Simulated scan of single mutants.
Amino acid sequence: MTLVRSEINWNTRYLTESPYKESVEWSKWSIFWLDERVVPKTSDDSNYKLAMDGFLSKVPIPEANILAIDDTKSKPSDAADDYEARLKDWVDKKILPLSSDNFPKHDLMLLGMGPDGHVASLFPNRTQQFETQRWVTFILDSPKPPPPRITYTFPVINAASEIAMVVTGAELADAVKNVLGTPNSTLPAAKVRPEGLLTWFLDQPAASGL
């Protein structure tokens, strides 16, 4: 299984406890990041640190199966190029398959959404959401700090076999209503249209506008 984490607060507590911790075939898991802040892995702003502290350090996924950002790359453009190159290496080694459109195909992506309708680090009024060739791109002026980030592009996101969109909180209600209740929504989250299955998981406050 290839699992891609974004910055969402996904509850993985049960997977780190019995019987799942002992019964899941962790050696078959590979972990990637939909987006990442260009900061040291020890930073509290790091999605890697969030995932490591809350989940990855508690289960026996082989280190070689965890594809984290190279935090020695201080320039976002270099970090994006490096991450894309390593994805292509996994494809060349037949670890990661390609979609029919020749983008890396992950089994499952965990996505969140911001109040402005952004997903990963693909924001409204930013050109990264329109990228169609690159697998990984970068942003220098994210409206949500810290500003320098790398991110998967929509062709990679939509190549996924399955996407879980997890949205909680009343502050997301307007964006949820826009994406799910408005034909031809222009918010980035409305561009999430995977080849496979898309499932929205909403709490009551987030769904209150529907």
Rank of each mutant, 00 (worst) to 15 (best):
L122K: 08
S100N: 11
D53L: 05
M52C: 14
G54M: 06
T132I: 14
I66R: 09
K58S: 09
K41A: 15
S99D: 13
E84R: 13
N102A: 14
M113P: 06
V24T: 04
D101P: 02
D35M: 07
P76V: 05
S121Y: 03
W26M: 00
G117R: 02
D82W: 13
W26S: 12
P146A: 07
E22D: 15
D101K: 15
F32R: 08
K94R: 13
V59W: 10
P104S: 09
T151R: 10
K75A: 15
I31A: 14
P19C: 00
Q128H: 11
V24E: 05
T137L: 08
N65G: 13
A80C: 07
W135R: 09
D116K: 01
D141L: 02
N65L: 07
P147T: 03
L50T: 14
I31W: 00
K75C: 14
T137K: 06
R134E: 04
T137S: 03
S142L: 08
L110V: 00
E131N: 15
L87V: 06
K58L: 06
S23N: 14
K93A: 01
L122H: 04
H106D: 03
D44C: 11
R126Q: 08
D92S: 13
V24F: 10
G112Q: 09
K73I: 02
P147R: 05
T42M: 06
D116I: 04
N47G: 05
P115N: 06
G54N: 04
W33L: 09
S30P: 05
T72P: 02
R37C: 06
R126H: 11
S27Y: 11
L140T: 00
E22V: 11
D82F: 07
F32N: 04
I139M: 04
S57E: 13
S99F: 04
P60E: 09
S77T: 07
L98S: 13
P145E: 10
T42A: 15
L110D: 10
H118N: 05
H106K: 10
L140Y: 11
I31G: 13
T132M: 15
P76F: 09
P60L: 13
M109T: 05
L108Y: 10
A79C: 11
S77P: 00
G117D: 07
Y20L: 10
K73T: 09
F138Q: 08
K94I: 12
L50G: 09
I66G: 06
D70L: 11
G54K: 10
P104I: 00
H106G: 12
L111Q: 06
V119W: 02
D141W: 02
Q128W: 02
E84C: 11
A120C: 10
S100Y: 00
F123G: 00
D35F: 00
D35L: 02
P146I: 03
W90R: 06
V91C: 13
E22S: 15
D81G: 15
S18Q: 01
K94F: 00
L87T: 01
K73Y: 04
T72V: 12
I95A: 12
W90F: 00
S100G: 01
D35E: 03
K28R: 15
D35N: 07
P124N: 02
G112N: 05
I150E: 10
Q133Y: 04
S23T: 14
L34G: 15
S23D: 14
N47I: 05
S99T: 15
A120R: 01
S43G: 08
L108V: 14
D70P: 07
P115G: 05
T127Q: 14
